[in-house]
Design a protein around this nucleic acid. Sequence first.
DNA 1: CTCTTGATCTTCT
DNA 2: GAAGATCAAGAGC
Length: 215
Amino acid sequence: MPPRPSVSSHSKLAVPGSVAPAKLGRPLPQKFFARSVHEVAPELIGATMLVNGVGGVIVEVEAYHQTEPAAHSYRGPTPRTMVMFGPPGFAYVYRSYGIHWCINFVCEKEGSAAAVLIRALQPTHGLAAMRRRRGLEDERALCSGPGKLASALAITNAQNGLALTAPPFAIHGRTSTPEIATGVRIGITKAAELPWRYGLKGSRFVSKPFTNGAA
DNA sequence: CTCTTGATCTTCT
DNA sequence: GAAGATCAAGAGC
């Protein structure tokens, strides 16, 4: 059988739209999260998020704040949203549509009830574990949505309320400043006009394209 | 490619 | 009873 010259080598190349495997920045301290959610959210783009060593580069997030009706915290604390009302630098994990888990990073200060929803990663660490948990091979489908990445990283309510600055979490800051795409948030009907979605411009690992040309 | 639907937990009406 | 910070599978074009 003649070899297949070009196709097999192409399959080893990085997926187009991926960033170069950058050096990990410093672990983000609690202080990083103790600022306006609108400062923290775009600065998380390009950071690396690992849970028990499995994860990747954050390429899409959304900001939520108690003062705005799309936020779970809008109507005050409940058993589910209690963590959002606590101090910054902790994980708020909630059940979505009764089936999926989604993870937020709590920001600002106790009582602010502001958080950043992590919506998509470019997988870089523990690909085999992610593929096993997701039952998929396609790298671009592993973490391209909040429910998907929680599944790939084995995030459940067991992580709700845990500090982001200690195991099993490892959140490393970025080492350079990427171009950021912005847009309206996905899948909400209230306060749908607010442009509080942030992405890595040109990334093909986001859950949905950004309409302002960012893919 | 787009559109529709089922899965079924937490909260609100 | 209904809606929701979702996803995957199936139908149709």
